[in-house]
Every structure is written in C-alpha cells, then in structure tokens.
Design a protein around this nucleic acid. Sequence first.
DNA 1: ATTTTATGTGTAACCGGTACCACATACTTA
DNA 2: TAAGTATGTGGTACCGGTTACACATAAAAT
Lengths: 337, 337
Amino acid sequence: MATIRDVAKLAGVSVATISRYLNKSGYVNVETEQKIKKAIEALNYEPNTVARGLAGKKTNTIALILPDISNPFFPELARAVEDVASMYGYTVILCNSDDEGVKEKSYIEVLKKKYIDGIIFASNTLDSADVEQMAKKGIPVVCLDRVPPKQSCSVVRSKNREGAKLAVEHLLGMGCRKIAHIYGPQEFITAKERLVGYEEAVKHLDWYSPTFMIQGDFRIEGGIRATELLMERHPDVDAIFAGNDLMAVGALKALHRMGVQVPGQVAVCGFDGIGMTEITQPELTTVAQPIYEMGALVSRILIKKIEGTLEADQTYELDVALVPRESTLRRNGHESS
Amino acid sequence: MATIRDVAKLAGVSVATISRYLNKSGYVNVETEQKIKKAIEALNYEPNTVARGLAGKKTNTIALILPDISNPFFPELARAVEDVASMYGYTVILCNSDDEGVKEKSYIEVLKKKYIDGIIFASNTLDSADVEQMAKKGIPVVCLDRVPPKQSCSVVRSKNREGAKLAVEHLLGMGCRKIAHIYGPQEFITAKERLVGYEEAVKHLDWYSPTFMIQGDFRIEGGIRATELLMERHPDVDAIFAGNDLMAVGALKALHRMGVQVPGQVAVCGFDGIGMTEITQPELTTVAQPIYEMGALVSRILIKKIEGTLEADQTYELDVALVPRESTLRRNGHESS
DNA sequence: ATTTTATGTGTAACCGGTACCACATACTTA
DNA sequence: TAAGTATGTGGTACCGGTTACACATAAAAT
C-alpha cells in the first residue's frame, strides 16, 4: 500500500499539497493537480482511513445500538440505516444491547475509543442523563422511539397514540363491540403510548372496563399467555388489539388452539407492520410504522448532525398507517373510510 | 481524554514502559506497575483504539458481509457473529451486498482501508479468485455456505444434500407418494445441493419425473408462483419440499388460496429453520440448519485465524435436523424414527 | 509605486499509540 | 573473574495522515 509520502515523492511535491488536493482544502495549481492525479493513479494510492481517523478524529463510522437484531422489527431498520450510511460514505457497527444498560454502556466505551462519529439508539435502556453526557462529550446521538431526553438529541418516533386509536376505530368500524388490548412492558414508551391511545379510544364506551387491558411482553409467548388469560376473563371479547405484531401473532396462535375463529369470533390487530404479519393465517391487520423510513431518517439525521448541517435537534413523529387484512375482516363489517 | 504521555508523566516513567505495562509485553517492575496503575486510575486513562490501529494495523474489528440483513435467515446469524465477536473484544461492521459483486468489492475496498482484521462472507457473489486475493493480501476470510475456494479460507456450511434426503424420507415416512421440489436459484450452492439431495432420494421411485422439480427464487413470491405452476402441472402431488423456508411459506400461501388442505392433501416441508416457520398455520416442518451455531462458529474461526491460533483452513459441515411440525402431519402417517 | 489580496507550496508538529534499540544493573555460569 | 543472561527502563522513529504557519509570487487595489 502506497502512502501519501510515496505519492508526494513521485509527483515531486510535498505531502501537504497532496493532502490539500485530496481534501480539496486550500489551493492547488491545475498542473500540479494533474501530476498528483497521475502519481496516485500510478501507485494505486488510497488514503488510509485509520490514519485519517487518528489525525482528524473522524472515522466515517457510526454505531447502531439496538436491543436484538434477531427481533423481527430491527432487521429492516438496520437495513435502512446501513443503506443511507453507505450512501453517505459511512460504515455501520452493529451492537446488540438486549436492553441491558451494562452492555449498552460498555459498547459506548468501546465506541468512543474508536472515534466513532455518532450513535443511533434504538434501545430503551439509556436514560436522559446518559444521552446528555454523550452530547456533552461531543458524540452526536440520535434516538429512536423515546421521549425527547431534554432535547439534547434528535428523536425519531411514530404516532403510537394515534396508531392505537386507528386500530380501535378500525375494529369498531368492522363491527366489533368489545375490544381488548394486550399492552407491552410499560418501561417502553411505545407500549405506554399505545395503551394510552387505546384507553382514550374506548373509555367512553359502555362496555369499557380496565379488565380488558392485559399485560404482554412484546413477544409471541407473552401474546399467547395474555390471550389465554383474557379469553378466560372475558369470553365475550370480539376483538384483540395487541401492542405489537409479535403479541398479535401470539394471540392468533392462542385463539387457534382454543378453536376460536379469527376473524369470525374474534378479530385481531397488531402494531408495527413487520413482515411476519403477511404470512400468518389469517393475514394480520396491523398498524404499520414506516420502519424503513424511520431507519433512513434516523440515519440521515445523524449524519447531518455529524457533518454539522443539522440546524437544531428535533423530534420527528412519523405517521403510522392501518393496514387492513383478513384478521379483522368481519362479514358484517363496513369499513368507515 | 488522557493520552499515554499524560500517564507516563504522572507516573514518572516513559511511554514505553506504559505501553509495555498495557500490553504485558516486556518487563515492568512491580512497584512501577503500581505507580502506573495509580496514574491510569487518576487520569481515567483508556488507550485510544484508533492510534493502536494505526500503529499496529490491528483494529479489533471484523466485517460481516451478507446479502441482506432483512432476509429472515440472517438476523440470527448476525446476532451469533456479534455475540462471539464482542465476547472476544471485537466489533462488527455490517454490510449488505444484495449479492451484487460491485457492492461487495466496494465494501472490501473500504474495509481494507479501515484495517479491518477479517471478513465473514455470507454472500454468494464472491468468486474464488477474489477470496484468493484477499488471502494473499493477508486479510483473514471465512466463508459461509460455499464450496471451499481452493482451500484458501475456512468455510462453514451445513449438510444440504443430507438435509434434502432427510426431508424426502420424512415425507415418505408420513405416507406421501408424490413429492415435488421447489428449488432455489442454482447459482447458490445450497440450492444446488438440496436439489441434488432431493433427486438422489426420489429418482429411483416409480413416479419420479423431472417435472416434479420446479424453480423458485428463494423468496415467498417465487414459492407461490412455483406452487401454482406445479399444482397445475401435477394436481396429484401430495407433498412439496421447498428449497428454503421462505418458498415453503409461499407454497403454504398458494395452497391455501387454492383451497388445498395442508397437510391433508399436500404436505409441505421447508429448509433452514427460520423463526417464521413457527408462526405459519399450519406450523411448518423444516430441515433446520443450526443458524446460531453457524454464526458463532464462523465468527470463532475468523477470530482464531486473526489471532493466529487456527491450525489450518478447513471446511466445517454442520448437521441439519428435521423439525417435524403440522405441515407434514398426515393422519395415516407413521414417522419412521 | 506601494500596499493588499489571491494563489500556490513546503516544513514540521501533531494525532496517540507501538516497538526497536541502547543502556544499566544484578545474577548466573563457565 | 570475565562473560553471559535475566530484568528493568528510556529515547525515539515509526504508523499515515492533517493542518498551522511561513514564505513566495502574481495580480489587483489604492
């Protein structure tokens, strides 16, 4: 591998000039430029990223910290992040935090020492204080799905409350009368907001009772258990709105095992819009988040922040969309468009 | 951030001694050691990874190049890779190649300039010549699912041919008489081997005809189309063995649309063992690859290779296991254990 | 005619580590 | 007793870039 000094020697100029040429900083004569171009060509020279990183404290690398890439929500997000990162010449480091603060912190330490340019948090553990600290140390951070931590970083999220209402309205529109909700762990903002949205949408209805809300764990297994409990408690429910798609899948499984017809007896609606919803039987109605767009946006924001072209930190709330499918299709249903 | 020189000054020794202490290379007096420890503590010193990378050409970073992280096969693999990497103090860079040679090559260029320590290829585009070249340039490479490229790198794969036979035998054991196969793109070794396995297992049977083999694209859509074609061509098939789970899911969907009972009229078996197979209705029988283990192994091998503790390049063929589920359950079936 | 300003280039310090080599002691060993 | 070896430490050149600063010249402004 040729170095900048080799190029300088061959081109008959100093390394400073080469550097100036490479970074288009400062003046370089057109003729000199030609000589340099030729030398670079001849030596097949490629600037060394690590040396650049050391000298400039910029590595063109960002980190994506998420709970678990094998959770079906994240691959698409990661793909989006990587797509726009690579488009802008950045490389992505993948970190699985399992939502454990310790792991998250240890990753952050490692990443700082690597002169990472910025971090995307799609993990729920980090508290505002941590984010604050990062911000203070000059590491650009962008978060996904969390309340703005005192506006020290940008946040991308989607309209969970509205989404939950959309779901309930859709179910009502399809003729459902008693709609239960399986909510996710309340330490997750998303779960909380969806629960609030559900409550707001149903609390004024005559059948409403808090017993229609039941806790899940955002996973299939939790959806199954919650559904079993729910059906025992309220054999009369005719719709289940799950706080995420995995739990909705669980509901589907549980209902199937119980011999309950979906959507005939009970309609099921999920939230997230992961690919799985298209392969269940029946296909799952869901409130889809624009997952890819969220990833792309969060990545773009981070890069802007890194490159100093971001005006101000902001919270972006993306629209969700109800995707009606078989699991909520009721023969007597009339979609209220 | 304190530097090694700050520590040296505070401890009253030279940077060389600090470096020796940090890397446990060369002698350091016990008392000196204590002084250094104290100084490091006091300054909260952490060696800078980038500087180390530049000086030592070792960055403790590996790259994982795969076709697409949003393809459900890869998240679990990526998780495994990252798990063992982080266990050994390595960081993982994620690259989506879309199986396009150009992208792959461009990633490799970027990665080389970053002094990446090694690469895991789970992508199918790279030819032996490329791998050879990498090997020559001293970049450790380990591949997934490909024929050993002239043994210039280690390869981890699973027993595709055996797996296909397992599938066919299982289907026969369940009483199926006419088993079709939807095979994947033949540029993928895995697809080819599974096809061969299928052929070997059925060619001696009286009903056998090449028309029972039909091409898919390793995706759901292709599975659907292939199944439609197949059922038109052979309305008498009673089992479909798909070259991967996604196509099996497609088959399930297509059959469901046609009103064909699964497993009643047609049994369906997939290959891979991705999570999706557990949420279809009926749940999908599949030949499961040990995906996590493959990722963990490939990662461990790469790290060994990087650290020079790998004796020799080798091909590891992992066992696959038939996971019988509803989609192949036939009332008159008698599992041949 | 003189001062600015724009253009063009080189020297060398610096980023923060690693590691080779020299040098100094204190023990062994021949 | 001289040579050899294990222990301990420091100086400093490197890794391969960036960039502040000094300096030179030509064109423009006063």
